[in-house]
């Protein structure tokens, strides 16, 4: 197996890695808003439910969650999960949504009360205060923490190899097993470094964009 062959196989596998990465973000970012809204709700049962949910998701390994989504439906309801990618995506989206919800909540709680009160005495509606005053500041506040999570996500996609999703790590493992060479497994690191490098630059740029003011 030549160096070029390995690269070609890894690029094939990167479709799963990147697909899982982007789709997870696409779902988890808004889903996190919903969970966060529930966790901050004044209605006690909703709040309690959301917090329990967050506790379970954050309190168990993502790997276990992937396994549960993959094999749970078949074992419990006798409707086997056919699509490995879908199983991984569901588990990842829920897991990351719970983490994002906590980040959002932290950002909202860190907003000084004075910002709401200033809006209120200026006769601004709740929607205006939340949308124009609070939201942009929360976004700025949580960007570094979100950056961390998103970079973790890129590496976490490798967890999906546990249900045989042919992402980069599983592909490397298969090559190692088939051709009795070990270096492709180490070489995966270059791919992850590249991806997380791009993300690091992206978040640096994002943080810079809101650097024009200090909270």
């Amino acid at each position: 197996m030549s160096f070029a062959d390995v690269n070609i196989q890894f690029l094939e596998a990167a479709k799963y890695t990147l697909g899982l990465f982007f789709l997870t973000l696409l779902i988890a970012i808004p889903l996190g808003v919903v969970i966060c809204a529930c966790a901050m709700s004044r209605f006690r049962p909703v709040k309690w439910l959301a917090n329990t949910f967050i506790w379970i998701i954050r309190g168990t390994p993502l790997m276990l969650q992937v396994i549960v989504v993959m094999y749970g439906p078949g074992l419990i309801f006798d409707v086997p999960m056919k699509n490995r990618f879908l199983a991984a995506l569901i588990a990842f989206a829920i897991n990351y949504a719970a983490y994002f919800a906590e980040i959002y909540r932290g950002g909202i709680m860190a907003m000084p009360k004075g910002q709401y009160e200033a809006g209120k005495v200026l006769g601004m509606s709740k929607a205006s205060v939340n949308g124009l005053v609070i939201f942009p500041q929360v976004v700025k506040k949580i960007t570094p923490a979100m950056g961390n999570e998103v970079i973790t996500l890129v590496k976490d996609t490798s967890i999906a190899n546990i249900i045989a999703l042919p992402e980069i790590i599983l592909t490397a493992k298969n090559i190692v097993a088939t051709y009795a060479i070990i270096w492709p497994l180490f070489y995966t690191g270059v791919f992850y470094l590249l991806m997380s490098g791009v993300l690091t630059l992206f978040f640096k740029w994002l943080e810079k964009r809101t650097n024009y003011y200090k909270a």
């Binding site: 000084p112 200033a118 942009p136 003011y213 200090k214 909270a215």
Partner: peptide
């Protein structure tokens, strides 16, 4: 007392 301007 603390101004409470919108920083952004």
């Amino acid at each position: 007392q603390s101004f409470n301007l919108f920083p952004h």
